[in-house]
Design a protein around this nucleic acid. Structure first.
Length: 493
RNA sequence: GCCCCCAUCGUCUAGAGGCCCAGGACGCAACCCUUUCAAGGUUAAGACCGGAGUUCGAAUCUCCGUGGGGGCACCA
């Protein structure tokens, strides 16, 4: 691993919701920059005006911050290599497009879109690879210059060598050799004056002194083009790292929006903006995505700081990875257990608020030890601890009836339990458990039957944190009142 | 169709010629603990895609198949 400070960038397009894959690139960029003492920057690639979605950019800012991946330079915080929005760098690309035309690496193309489309159709009919037919490539430079000066609409195309090969070096895959005839005269500058990705990213990475380009492997197809452009400028190449793609949980095919809809109904999402609502933590998400495509070898539970310590682009993997939401659950739950009580309390409050529950801080602090190890997602605090903050609970009558018993018998148990508990000055684990256990012994019934009734009566639910600890937090008066209520319900059946 | 990339338990991965009859994690199963649910502990099942080479020796190198993925736009 080089000790030279790395400058990395995450360069999403504001064309939709921020995706898991973007988050992972950002994470790796962040880790590499921190590891080497370099910088990690955010660049917005908004050159496709038609696809730009309002609000998408803000979602990227928010998502990155939520994940704790604060960039050192970016559109909303500035930096000395700005601007960091490509639409604000138009002149820079136009300048460099001209440089390429002047040095014979590119040429203006005046072909109309419908002409292009027609030739493409014909080529496909002939089962040829669709590619630009080269009409304008054959134009004499001064002729082309004249037409440009005349104000004709044009694009700028890269003049791909017709023969020979391009050898592009990827850090994970080694040399990738491509025959130039497989490559196309790609458009670098569109007729609206904005660059395509190919020109923009190469120019910006150079101008912003990016040392390592981490991106998805969907760029492998145009990778040779990018390398050609860099070389046509005579620039030094960054280290290229093409990451694996994320596959659907089934492993069949890349993640798509459709999968997202399905996933959402299951309580999962591939969009960062949804994660907080679903109760996932940045720690859990980071841990999860970090390990898809990176073999850390040691502990699977790892904090961002530990990641920085261990990160190396050498141990990234090249094969596609199927996402696995069960693992997300595991990482999320584990990181929740790792949090301090105070931290967890602060994170839980919004979820209670969302349910309209008024949370008393002292109570919250007291219940955290009771619910912490039961939480998979933060919003589980409602199902495991919502009743602590409610004035009354409304147990389902059928749940108050113990297994193997009828309503009458259950009512009797509830009444007797009430008597035992009401005889106590104070209800807590130490005072309540012994007499209740004694009652179980003398009754000849199963402990689950008796404790189960009390549990449902007091918490309103069949599954809850430990009973007596919970009762202690709820308080004597409320417990007794809830027991009386249960007796009533049972007697009415 | 063409081009490129990838290929170890169901999933994520360790493994850079002998340390591997392949290790870890998730999940799954069993048991222990246990007032429910968890958590925790112990154990089990579970993989080197196939075929040729190279080598004394291959999960690791080469080639060919096969499978999977990505790309072939004035989208990124």
């Amino acid at each position: 691993m080089s000790i030279k400070p790395a400058r990395t960038r995450v360069a999403p397009s504001p064309t939709g919701h921020m995706h898991l894959a973007t988050a992972r690139v950002a994470l790796y960029d962040y880790l590499l920059a921190r590891k080497t003492g370099g910088q990690y920057i955010l660049r917005i690639e908004d050159t496709d005006l038609k696809r730009t979605v309002p609000g998408a950019e803000q979602e990227i800012f928010d998502g990155l911050r939520w994940l704790g991946l604060q960039y050192d330079e970016g559109p909303d915080i500035g930096g000395k290599y700005g601007p960091y929005r490509q639409t604000e760098r138009r002149e820079i690309y136009q300048h460099y497009a001209k440089v390429l035309i002047d040095n014979g690496s590119a040429y203006p193309c005046f072909c109309a879109p419908d002409h292009l489309e027609k030739t493409r159709q014909e080529q496909m009919k002939r089962k040829e690879n669709p590619h630009y037919d080269g009409t304008c490539r054959a134009l004499a430079p001064d002729e082309a210059a004249r037409r440009v000066a005349n104000g004709e609409k044009y694009t700028v195309r890269y003049k791909m060598p017709r023969d020979g090969v391009t050898i592009a070096h990827d850090h994970l895959r080694g040399d990738i050799v491509t025959e130039n005839k497989q490559l196309n005269d790609y458009v670098l500058l569109k007729s609206d004056g904005l660059p395509t990705y190919h020109l923009a990213s190469v120019v910006d990475d150079h101008e912003m002194e990016i040392t390592h380009v981490l991106r998805g492997s969907e760029w492998l197809g145009t990778f040779p083009l990018h390398v050609n452009i860099v070389r046509a400028f005579g620039w030094e190449e960054p280290t290229w790292v093409h990451l694996s793609v994320f596959l659907k949980p089934s492993g069949k095919g890349k993640l798509s929006k459709r999968d997202t809809t399905i996933a959402m109904t299951d309580g999962y999402s591939v969009f960062i903006k949804d994660m907080n609502d679903l109760g996932f933590t940045p720690e859990g998400i980071n841990n999860w995505i970090a390990l898809m495509g990176w073999g850390v070898a040691e502990d699977d539970i790892i904090t961002t700081d530990q990641m920085i310590e261990r990160f190396s682009i050498d141990s990234l993997t090249a094969s596609p990875a199927a996402i696995n939401f069960q693992k997300l659950d595991h990482f999320n739950a584990t990181h929740i257990r790792l949090m301090t009580t105070g931290d967890l309390a602060a994170r839980l409050k919004p979820y209670y608020a969302r349910e309209g529950l008024d949370v008393d801080d002292d109570v919250l602090l007291k219940i955290i030890p009771l619910i912490r190890e039961r939480l998979v997602t933060l919003d589980d605090c409602i199902s495991f601890g919502g009743f602590f903050f409610k004035e009354n609970v409304t147990p389902a009558p059928e749940e108050l009836i113990a297994k193997g018993l009828d309503a009458k018998q259950s009512a009797e148990i509830a009444r007797k339990s009430y008597e035992i508990l009401s005889a106590l000055d104070n209800i807590n684990h130490a005072t309540a458990e012994p007499p209740m256990r004694a009652y179980v012994e003398s009754s000849g019934l199963n402990i689950n039957q008796i404790f189960g009734i009390v549990r449902v009566a007091v918490t309103g639910q069949k599954v809850s944190p430990p009973l007596f600890e919970s009762m202690e937090v709820i308080g004597r008066e409320k417990c007794l009142q809830r027991m009386r209520n249960a007796v009533e319900i049972l007697e009415k059946i």
